[in-house]
């Protein structure tokens, strides 16, 4: 019953969020600010994780397929496929759920407990729309760019680690990342990214928006935002993979 209550309230909040904006220009300027806060400021962690993860994927792939029957370029191929299909869109989204999701829930939750959301409502502002819609728009616009950067850096990290450690020759790796490339896989990854961005933002905003109590409850909302976003991302990942790849 409680789950149904939350699902119902989540969709009611979404309906409010997508209500008519009071002033489009104000919403747009907030969207740009949020793109910087939630997207550009996440670039560092995304870049770091991607490069190291790509390096690890390359080395692990090599150690697992070290056989004369398997050609050397397969290492580059496996790194590319793991990165584009799963690592960049899903794992980076899970990381972003931790960073961005907790940020959103804490910010909106603090505004709730300090009566700032009540102040917006009393002014006649659609508080859900004003606070949440720019965040949704921002993450759905900026996250695909973050993920594309992640894909590039992960494959680059894999190449660098592979060549530097001597597990793969540069030519073989480059041949591998070009072999059987399907542009649709990038489309699939970007569709997943956009859906995950929506999930992260709306679930975290929901947790923050309905925070009751004080600072302790803001912390609880923040934790819930991360946990529930991750669970829903994993479920959506399965559904999207079946729907888009099979």
């Amino acid at each position: 019953m409680s789950v149904l209550f939350h699902i119902g309230r989540y969709f009611l909040l979404l309906r409010e969020t997508f209500g008519r904006p009071e002033r489009f220009s104000l919403y747009w300027s907030r969207t740009v600010e949020e793109m910087d806060l939630l997207g550009v400021k996440s670039l560092g962690i995304v870049a770091l994780l991607s490069a190291f993860m790509g390096a690890v994927i390359t080395i692990q792939t090599k150690t697992n397929i070290d056989s004369p029957l398997i050609q050397a370029w397969v290492v580059g191929f496996a790194t590319r496929q793991s990165t584009i299909l799963e690592f960049s869109p899903t794992v980076i989204s899970l990381i972003l759920a931790g960073k961005v999701g907790s940020n959103i829930a804490a910010e909106i939750g603090s505004m709730r407990v300090k009566e700032q959301i009540d102040a917006l409502d009393i002014m006649g502002v659609n508080s859900a729309g004003y606070l949440i819609l720019p965040k949704i728009a921002a993450t759905m616009l900026i996250n695909p760019f973050l993920i594309m950067i992640s894909m590039f850096l992960s494959i680059f990290g894999g190449w660098l680690a592979g060549v530097e450690t001597g597990v793969v020759v540069s030519e073989d790796f480059i041949q591998g990342i070009q072999a059987g490339f399907k542009p649709y896989h990038v489309v699939y990854a970007l569709v997943k990214t956009i859906v995950f961005a929506f999930i992260i933002t709306t679930i975290s905003a929901y947790q923050g928006y309905y925070t009751k109590g004080g600072t302790r409850e803001v912390g609880i909302s923040s934790t819930r935002a991360v946990v529930y976003s991750n669970v829903v991302i994993l479920f959506a990942n399965l559904v999207l993979t079946q729907a888009l790849l099979l």
Partner: peptide, 28 residues
């Protein structure tokens, strides 16, 4: 047409004093 002063003031933390006062004007 309602103005409300909250117990904890409920000023927006991320806005300066002038931006807080200008907020309803910018909105409406």
């Amino acid at each position: 047409r309602i103005g409300m002063l909250f117990q904890g003031s409920a000023l927006f933390d991320s806005l300066t004093v002038i931006e807080n006062v200008m907020f309803p004007l910018r909105m409406f």
